[in-house]
Structures are given as structure tokens and as C-alpha cells.
Design a protein around this nucleic acid. Sequence first.
DNA 1: CGCAAATATGCAGAGACTGCAAAAATATAT
DNA 2: ATATATTTTTGCAGTCTCTGCATATTTGCG
Lengths: 240, 240
Amino acid sequence: MRILHDVSDRDPAEGGGLRGRKKRETRASLVAAAVRLAAEHGAENVTVDAISEAAGVSPRTFFNYFDSRDEAFVMMGAESSGRVRRAVLAAPAEVPPLAVLRDALAAELGEVEQQHELWRLHSEVLRRSPHLLARSIGAHVEDEFTLAETLAERIGAGSPLFTGDRPPLGTAEGQLRRQALELYPRLLAAVGTTAVRVAVEHWCVRQDEATFEAVFRTAFDHLAAGLAEPAAPAVPVDEA
Amino acid sequence: MRILHDVSDRDPAEGGGLRGRKKRETRASLVAAAVRLAAEHGAENVTVDAISEAAGVSPRTFFNYFDSRDEAFVMMGAESSGRVRRAVLAAPAEVPPLAVLRDALAAELGEVEQQHELWRLHSEVLRRSPHLLARSIGAHVEDEFTLAETLAERIGAGSPLFTGDRPPLGTAEGQLRRQALELYPRLLAAVGTTAVRVAVEHWCVRQDEATFEAVFRTAFDHLAAGLAEPAAPAVPVDEA
DNA sequence: CGCAAATATGCAGAGACTGCAAAAATATAT
DNA sequence: ATATATTTTTGCAGTCTCTGCATATTTGCG
């Protein structure tokens, strides 16, 4: 039994065939049209009919790609998840997890600056509609879960938790250790994603005072310092 | 000029008068009705008409309290923000910020267990509708911002950044320090909120393996340890 | 009680969204 | 190339969400 009405139900969306390509093109086209129209007229004043017409498809087709109108304003960067995942898995084994995550996210944020123009409009749209900002943040929780799994995979490979000697999982310490093991990647992914969001928001308000790179690193330095009170500029997570 | 159609426009919602009380009662009544109906029939199958009737108001009135139907499923715990704020400001001056936040959140989570029954239904509803889960998470970003301001206020009181000698803000070091000062409370609030969310989600899945209190503390211990790889059970943030 | 402000309600209408069935496009086999 | 199966698009009808406006009801206060 298949779930109906979900265009991205399986492969063809990622396949190299004509179907997959057209599908990705249509989706991107709808997102771009939605963002551009919202930037110009305000998100509330953009109808599904308008978006569909601008993208060259029927209004009914719009709902084959998105469950709601707002989703079209929020579904940017859907491919980032995969790239970050690859970057995390490709990192050298000796780098600590937090640094791995930091660098993977930094690389992706660099990629994003290619689409500069559309992302600029996008942030403008979100800034003017708190409603959509909330929606956008919530939408990224899905990616966060995937990221947690990737981090768990990455950590599992070279972690002393798996390689060295350890107490059997049946014991009390084993239970504690196992709980921490499952909680840690989840927390790391969630906190990392959150740090990116805060850094972006912070930087958007004061673009003239510092580069995004600086804000981003400061945020992760805070994390590495255990979020201790910053009596002095936070210490970097590594010097390598 | 006032924004129309927003019932919580100002005071009366919090005032002790009859107006404020009835308003809070109606809102709570609508939320409770929405959650209960959603738990029974599934959130998608609950119409505004049904919620309104169960709460004893007209459908039109529903939209005087919520901007969208889904908001009624998500607007639980709206009063938590204020209580956490008070707890943060009331904490002894010598406790480090992360510990202050941790304890304030822990106290509030204890409070929540009073409404046990409704919260149980609520989490059930969110679990069965990822769409609403995303919405719920996004909705709490507003509170997160308030919390950041509270933390900044609290830190500003006893922080060496304000009490001791410091370089003038015009200098380069001053700029860096100021940026960190503004970023830190924001990051602390966001990360703390995130940690609570992850702890709750993690605990919901494995309620039998550990108490929520334990999961919660483990999460904050990870934060205090700079999210370092947990080779051994994470070290507590304080021993006091 | 009588007046002013806040709130609730009804109504009409635009727009969001869904199920269904037919048409068009694409893949696969002969 | 033609036929067939699968996927995607589209139109249509209908329900539900949400808003503006006018009106009635309730509450606060002198």
C-alpha cells in the first residue's frame, strides 16, 4: 500500500531519468516563484494560483508537491541535508565530533552563498512573516533527525565506546552508558542546528559589525567551552 | 492605531478582573477541547466547528483566539515562559548561567507534571502528526527570545563584563566582546530550549529505561562538558 | 442606572485543500 | 515504430479554513 498524493514517494525524484529531473525542476520552480512573489507582495498576499501560474503548472499540481501553501516558502535547501551528511562521514577520524559538525555546516553555508540572490529574498520573506519563520524552523527538525543518525554512524566508527573494553550493557553502568550513547548524537545534531540558526539570526541583524564566519565560529566556541560565562573571548575548540 | 482581531492585545488577558479570567478560561477551554478531540479522532479530522462547540463558543470566536486551527493544538504551556523568567531572575548570583537555566527549566517541567493528563494527550497528538510537531517547535521560538532577554538581564547584574574594568566598546577588543555579549544569552536560551526538547523526545521513546530527571541532567551535563565525545559518563556542571 | 470599551456572534465571501476520474507524458517491451 | 503499463498533470466539485464587517451581548466604571 502506498501513500497517495506524495510526489516524492520514492526514487524517481532523485533518479537521473527525465522524470526525476523534471520533477526536481518543477519543485525548484515553484519554490523560486513562491519566494519571489512573497518578497514582492508579502507572503499573505500570494495565492496558490499566482505561484502556480508563475511556475507554469496548474494550481492542482501545486498540491502534488506541497501539503500546504506555506510549505513552498519554506522548502528551500532541501538538498543541504545530504551534503552535510556526506561531509560528516568524510571527515578524518581524529577530529572531535563537535568540530566535525562545525566544519560540515560551515562548508554547507558556503555552498548556500552561491544561490545568494534567492536566499536573500528568502530571509527577507521570513523576517517579515514570523509565522513562516516558526514554520521554517520546525520544518528543519526532520533534517535534524537524519543528521543525528549520521553523527551516530560517524561516532560509532572510531569511538572508544565501541573499540575499547567496556562493561556489558546489562549492568547499571552499561545502561547509563548506552543511554548517553543514544542521547549524545541527537543532542549534538540538535544543538549544532540551533547554533547555526542563532548565528544566522544574530548576523542578519548586524551584518556590518562582523562577518558571518566570525559569528559562526564564536557560537561554536561557546558550545565547546561548555556555554560558560564569557569572561574573556571564548576559547577555540581546536588549534590544529 | 491598534491591531484588530487580537484578543490578547494587551492587559486584560492577564488582569485579575472578570474579563481576564474569562478570557484565559475560554482559551484554555479551547485548547483542552482541541487536544482531547485530536487525541480521539486524529488532528486532521477535527474541525474548528467541533472544537468550538466542545468549548461552548461560536466558531467565529475561535479565530478571535487563534490565527489558525493548528494553533489550538500547539498553544499549551503559554504561561511557562513567565514562570521560567521569574525563576531565572530569582536564582542566587553565584550560580553559573547554564546551571541557572537548567534549574529554572527543571522546576517548570516539574510544574507541568501537574497537568499530567492533558500533556500526555498532547504529546500523543504531536507524535501522530509530525506536521504539528514541527509547528509546536517553531512556536516556541518566540518564548526563546524572551528567555534570551531574561538571561541577558540576569547575567548583566553580576557579570565581570559589567562590574570589572573593561576596554571601551569602541576598540577592536570592545567590538568582539560586545558581540559575544549579545550572542551568548541568545545562544544559551536557544540551546537550553533545544536540550529540553531533545530530552523530552528521547525520554518519551524509552520511558521505562530511565527517569526524565536523569535524561534531563545527562543532556545538560553534555552541554557543560562542551559536547565532547562521551568516553565516560559526562561530568556534572557543578557539585554545590 | 447609563455610558464606554471589550468581546462574542452571524453572515458573506475568498481562498486553501482533497478525492476522483480523465488526459497527457514517460518508461518499457515487443 | 507500436503497443502497453506506469507516472504525472489537470479539471472539477465540494468541504473546510480564515477574514472583514455589522450587530448584539457582556463587562468596567462613574
